[in-house]
Computed example of a mutant assay.
Amino acid sequence: MPDSDDGSVVPGPPPAQPVDRQLTAGALVLFRFLHRSAGRFAMFGHQDDTFCHHATDADSDVLAVAGGYPAVWGFDLGRIELGWSANIDGIPFDDIRREIRRAHQIGAIPTVSWHSVNPLTDGGYGENMAAGSVAAVLPGGAAHGRYLGWLDRAADFLLSVCDEHGEPIPVVFRPYHEHTGTWFWWCPGSSVEATDTTPDQYAELWRMTVHHLRDVRGLHHVLYAYSPDRSRISMSSDATRRADYLYGYPGDGYVDVLGLDDYWDLDQDPTAHTPVDRHADLVTMLSLVGRLAAERGKLAAATEIGSPGAFAAAYEGPSAAPGAGDAPWTGYLLSAALANDDTRRVLWYLPWRNSEEAAGGGAYGTPAPGSPYAPDFRAFVRSDFMRLADTLERPLP
């Protein structure tokens, strides 16, 4: 341990320990690789990269624009809980299984979110909230047994995704994301706006999920990512930011990755803040996540982000932050990633899918071929600090 100025011993950060002390060999290699990589580089990720693209001569807009696939591939399990053959976006689970294998084969890292329906009403987007939802799925609740069945379906899928040797492929699982918001059934909200679910109930839901997947179903190839929504985190003080970020936190023994879903600081709406202020807030939030990860022996990631290109299109003139106009990826996002030692700890940045309905909006993902932001995006992912799959040198188990 380092010595302080007065000669006393200053405790260092805790050693990195996975949520699952029985990780498979491959998952343990991934866990150690990520911790060794923190601060050295960041990886570019993309949701549904090969399922959702505009390029006609490639199965990926990232590949078409930058010459390589993302280093982190995002997938979603929404509707696995209902036993459907395809997910919330109509992508067959057999295809998702195939693409997770493909990502693994090229050295990319799969991460899996879960937009499940409401366990009381089966309502999806726009109808996902209902009073008492979390209480109902906790032990003793009316929907507890049904919900364990949902967890079993998710477990069955994750166990079914194996490599050529029959070993389950390591994944980063990101359930119950954006819980500081008010739009999903699992959300307790935040100090800005609470729901009927308490933070303790959310934490209990998370711990119950880890216990069931890890200890009951024997999933030992999973890292668990926690990802509050940025828009409901108060910027009034560092103490408030920390409290809002950790609202409902299930404890260090149940989280491997401290993530952040941030559309707020990379949004297309120019009315709320100037680009200079937004950029400063982005740096502040990335710094917070990186610092908390260092303090707690965790990994840090920008688990969902908005599109800097869509954000930049709304701004011109002297109020623009560096790169907010013609270089949103390098000037705006990369400069934030490189701002300080804490932001450098953020290990990946994952924009959402390149869907037609999101084109021109803040949730739209990466530039397609022909976009005015394509050259800047290429410079971003090919910068010395960023990694695509073809520049990510991962050790084998």
Rank of each mutant, 00 (worst) to 15 (best):
G218R: 08
G218N: 02
L219Y: 05
H220V: 05
H220P: 03
H221P: 11
V222G: 10
V222N: 14
Y224W: 15
Y224F: 11
Y224V: 14
A225C: 12
Y226L: 12
S227M: 04
D229H: 04
D229N: 02
S231V: 07
S231I: 08
S234T: 14
M235N: 15
M235Q: 15
S236V: 15
S237K: 03
S237W: 04
D238I: 08
A239I: 02
A239N: 01
R241D: 00
A243D: 08
A243G: 02
D244S: 15
Y245I: 12
Y245V: 13
L246W: 01
G248M: 11
Y249P: 12
G251M: 12
V255N: 01
D256F: 10
V257I: 07
G259A: 06
L260I: 05
D261K: 01
D261I: 10
D262I: 00
D262F: 03
D265T: 09
L266W: 01
D267Y: 03
Q268A: 01
Q268R: 04
D269G: 00
P270T: 01
A272Y: 09
A272V: 12
H273W: 10
H273I: 00
T274P: 11
P275Y: 02
P275V: 02
D277P: 00
R278G: 00
L282N: 11
V283Y: 14
V283D: 15
T284R: 15
T284H: 15
M285F: 13
S287I: 15
L288V: 15
L288R: 03
V289F: 10
R291K: 15
R291H: 12
L292W: 06
A294W: 11
A294I: 01
E295I: 12
E295Q: 10
R296Q: 08
L299K: 04
A300L: 10
A300S: 08
A301N: 05
A301M: 06
A302Q: 05
A302G: 08
A302S: 08
E304H: 03
I305R: 00
I305T: 04
G306N: 03
S307W: 08
P308G: 03
G309E: 09
G309V: 08
A310C: 11
F311Q: 09
A312Q: 02
A313F: 10
A313E: 09
A314H: 05
E316T: 15
P318G: 06
S319R: 09
A321F: 08
A321W: 05
A321N: 08
P322D: 04
P322A: 06
G323W: 03
A324E: 01
A327V: 00
A327D: 05
P328T: 07
P328L: 05
P328C: 07
W329G: 04
W329H: 07
T330G: 02
Y332G: 00
L333D: 04
L333F: 08
L333S: 07
L333E: 07
S335K: 08
S335P: 00
A336V: 13
A336G: 13
A337T: 11
A337W: 07
A339G: 13
A339P: 14
A339M: 13
A339H: 13
N340Q: 14
R344Q: 12
R345N: 03
V346T: 13
W348F: 14
L350E: 07
W352P: 09
N354W: 02
N354T: 07
